[in-house]
């Protein structure tokens, strides 16, 4: 049980006076991030949808990065991973990250391969 809290977020850029204040601060941050995501999702600026980076639209990169940012603050501040021992933190965080990255990598590559089989094959799918 970690009764003492670390009250800094953004690597010490923002320091709160109490744990309650920090919770509200993180809420404001998460709300802003969600609002930005929804705003971008509705307007879909052409600069971001027409340009690609490693085969994916810039807009989708932004969505995924912002999601990971949100996940970080939920886990670190709401689930108090920030206050836990680093060994617990590492065991809990790196295990799924490694397994998920591996799974996503193989599944998406395989799916892309099947897409090409459908596309270049001689069987008609769209009729």
């Amino acid at each position: 049980m970690a009764h003492e809290h670390k009250l800094e977020i953004f690597r010490g850029l923002l320091k709160f006076k109490s744990n309650t204040q920090k919770i509200w601060g993180v809420l404001i941050f998460l709300t802003i991030v969600t609002a930005v995501e929804v705003g971008l999702g509705i307007t879909k600026p052409e600069v971001l949808t027409q340009n690609y980076f490693i085969g994916m639209k810039l807009l989708n990169w932004i969505f995924i990065i912002l999601t990971l940012v949100k996940a970080y603050y939920i886990a670190w501040d709401f689930m108090h991973l920030r206050d836990e021992r680093s060994s617990l933190r590492r065991a809990v965080v790196w295990t799924p990250i490694f397994l998920v990255a591996y799974l996503v990598f193989i599944l998406l590559f395989e799916a892309d391969y099947i897409y090409n089989v459908f596309k270049d094959g001689f069987v008609k799918w769209n009729f």
């Binding site: 996503v104 599944l107 998406l108 799916a111 892309d112 897409y115």
Partner: peptide, 8 residues
Amino acid sequence: ASYGFSRF
């Protein structure tokens, strides 16, 4: 991930 698979 399987959603991503089907989508790709």
